[in-house]
C-alpha cells in the first residue's frame, strides 16, 4: 500500500510469560492523525516503541515508512520524530541550544526559531531546561521531535499530567503539525483528546484492538440508541404505551432508549403536555466516545496501572 505510513500485521510482543500485545493490525495513512486509545497497560506504548525501533517484536510484521523498524536504520530514524512518554532533556542547556543540538543530527532540519515558535516557547528561548515548567518541557519534547522536520511523528501520551489550559495549548500544537501535513500516531487515554485531534481512532484493550474507526462513528456510536431520561412524580400514571418498549423505571426515574429520538420526544412531550405532567430533569443524551470506550475496554478507563 503506497499511501500507508505505518503498516502493522498480527503484531505480537511478549515479556516472559506476559503477552503485552496479542496480534494487532493497524494501518496509518500518510497525512493522517491516528490515535491509539486505551487504558494504561493496554499495550499502547509497547506497540509504539516497537514502531519507533526501541523494542523488538515477538511476532508479526511492521513497516514504518516502508522500512522494518527493528533494523533501526539510521535513514529511517532521520525521517521520524519521537516524543516519548517521559521527558529526558539535558537540564543545563537552554531551549534554543537544545533544539540547535538536536537539529544538527538531521540532514534537512527546520530553523531553530521556527521550531521554538511552533511549540510556543519563543519567550523561553534562552531559558535553561531546568527552569521550565512540566508543560513547557513537554512542548520542548515536541520541539525536539520536530527539529529534523520529520514526515512521521510519534506522540506517546503527549498531554498526560497537563492542566486543562496546557492541554488545550498542546492540542493547538498538534493541530498545527497536522496542518503541515505530518503523519501523526499518538497514544492517549483521554477520549476527548482522541476526539479533538484524531482523524481515526483505534481502541486497544489488553493487547488487542477492540474497535477502530473515525471518532464520530466508533463502536457504532452514530447509530446507537439515544437515551432519554426524566423523573415521573408518583401517581402520574405510566408512560404512553406506544413508548413502553425500551423503558426501564426505577423509583420514579425513567430511562428510555430509542433509535428515533425525534418521534419519541414528540410523543413523550405531547403525552406530558396533554396530561399536565411535568417531566422533571428531562435529559436527552447520545452515547459519548467515553461511554463507548468504557464499554469496549471493560470500564478500565482512567485507571492507573
Amino acid at each position: 500500500m503506497a499511501d500507508a505510513a505505518i503498516e502493522v500485521r498480527a503484531l505480537r510482543k511478549s515479556y516472559g510469560d506476559v503477552e503485552a500485545v496479542k496480534g494487532i493490525d493497524l494501518t496509518v495513512r500518510v497525512g493522517e492523525v491516528f490515535a491509539l486509545l486505551g487504558p494504561n497497560g493496554a499495550g499502547k506504548t509497547t506497540t509504539v516503541e516497537i514502531l519507533e525501533g526501541f523494542r523488538d517484536r515477538s511476532g508479526g510484521e511492521a513497516r514504518v515508512l516502508g522500512q522494518d523498524p527493528a533494523t533501526r536504520d539510521r535513514r529511517l530514524r532521520a525521517r521520524i520524530g519521537i516524543v516519548l512518554q517521559s521527558t529526558g532533556i539535558d537540564p543545563y542547556l537552554t531551549v534554543a541550544e537544545t533544539i540547535d543540538l538536536f537539529r544538527s543530527y538531521y540532514a534537512t532540519p527546520r530553523p531553530v526559531d521556527e521550531v521554538i515558535e511552533l511549540v510556543g516557547l519563543t519567550e523561553k528561548r534562552d531559558t535553561r531546561v531546568l527552569k521550565l515548567s512540566g508543560g513547557q518541557q513537554r512542548r520542548l519534547d515536541v520541539g525536539i521531535a520536530l527539529a529534523g522536520d520529520p514526515e512521521l511523528l510519534f506522540l506517546d501520551e503527549p498531554t498526560t499530567g497537563f492542566d486543562p489550559s496546557a492541554r488545550r495549548n498542546a492540542w493547538g500544537v498538534v493541530k498545527n503539525l497536522a496542518e503541515l501535513g505530518k503523519t501523526i500516531l499518538l497514544t492517549t487515554h483521554y477520549m476527548d483528546e482522541a476526539q479533538v485531534l484524531a482523524d481515526r481512532v483505534a481502541v486497544i484493550s489488553a493487547g488487542v484492538i477492540v474497535a477502530e474507526g473515525d471518532p464520530a462513528s466508533l463502536g457504532g456510536r452514530d447509530t446507537a440508541a439515544t437515551l432519554v431520561r426524566f423523573r415521573l412524580p408518583p401517581g402520574q400514571g405510566d408512560v404512553p404505551p406506544s413508548l413502553a418498549e425500551g423503558v426501564s423505571t426505577d423509583d420514579g426515574r425513567v430511562e428510555l432508549r430509542t433509535t428515533d429520538p425525534t418521534r419519541t420526544l414528540y410523543e413523550l412531550t405531547r403525552w406530558a403536555v396533554e396530561r399536565g405532567v411535568v417531566l422533571e430533569g428531562l435529559d436527552v443524551t447520545r452515547p459519548t466516545l467515553e461511554d463507548v470506550y468504557l464499554e469496549l475496554t471493560g470500564g478500565e478507563a482512567g485507571h492507573e496501572g
Binding site: 526501541f54 535513514r75 530514524r77 532521520a78 529526558g88 532533556i89 539535558d90 543530527y105 538531521y106
Partner: peptide, 17 residues
C-alpha cells in the same frame, strides 16, 4: 544519571550514531 533521566533513550531515537 542520564540513563535514568531518559536522556539516553531520547538520543537513541535520533539519527545520531
Amino acid at each position: 544519571f542520564q540513563r535514568d533521566a531518559g536522556i539516553l533513550k531520547r538520543v537513541r531515537g535520533t539519527p545520531l550514531p
